[in-house]
């Protein structure tokens, strides 16, 4: 493979990584818009009961905000050339991301103990929607965690620098988006279902 070829590929990557992500994000937004609109339409049927949102979901909201802040701090550290702090920040982000999933799980356990079921004959529309929306958010978060692990490995290996941090920027954009998506879902659930 010639040098020119490699340069071209690098240029394509530089030009297209972020737009690819942004348009992917648009399609995810449409996916969740479809689902939350479905909730609103179903609610128009008039049979919605209120469900108490578990406190764990409030905690997870705080955790995901903190994780976004930590990741952002990591990015700033790379820009300043302070890789030691960057490593710690990304690691903290990953731990917070995993804690988010844990608190979501605790939330489901609390719901289950209150006899709010996801599926089966005792489930209701509102309970099914509640589990489905939170679970689908986690499904998207798993992609974010995988990219976070890649970024962590690369940060530890000191691959990033001021001139070379595209992968980290793409990952952080997606991570912030997941945080924003959760905050939207949290308030949506809080005021529509709960």
């Amino acid at each position: 493979m010639s040098m020119e070829n490699i340069n071209y590929k690098e240029e394509v990557r530089r030009k297209t990584s972020k737009p690819l992500l942004w348009i992917g994000i648009v399609s995810i937004i449409m996916f969740f818009s479809g689902l939350t609109s479905a909730v609103v339409v179903s609610q128009g049927g008039g049979s919605f009961l209120k469900i108490d949102l578990p406190f764990a979901f409030t905690i997870s909201t705080l955790i995901i905000i903190a994780s976004s802040a930590a990741f952002h701090f990591g990015l700033i550290s790379v820009k300043k050339g302070n890789l030691a702090i960057a490593k710690i920040s990304v690691l903290v982000t990953l731990v917070l991301g995993l804690s988010f999933i844990l608190t979501q799980f605790l939330g489901w356990v609390a719901l289950y103990e209150n006899e709010v079921y996801a599926v089966g004959s005792q489930s209701t529309q509102e309970s099914s929607y509640l589990y489905l929306l939170t679970a689908l958010h986690i499904a998207h978060l798993l992609g974010g965690l995988i990219s976070l692990i890649v970024v962590l490995v690369k940060t530890i290996k000191e691959r990033y620098s001021v001139d070379n941090m595209l992968g980290m920027q793409v990952s952080i954009t997606y991570w912030h988006f997941l945080g924003g998506l959760w905050i939207y879902l949290f308030f949506f659930l809080r005021y529509i279902i709960a």
Partner: peptide, 18 residues
């Protein structure tokens, strides 16, 4: 993506009793 959400809800209705 909206069709995907539509199909997903149908899958749940068919297979999981929602």
């Amino acid at each position: 993506p909206v069709l995907l959400s539509c199909a997903l809800l149908l899958i749940f209705d068919r297979s999981f009793g929602t």
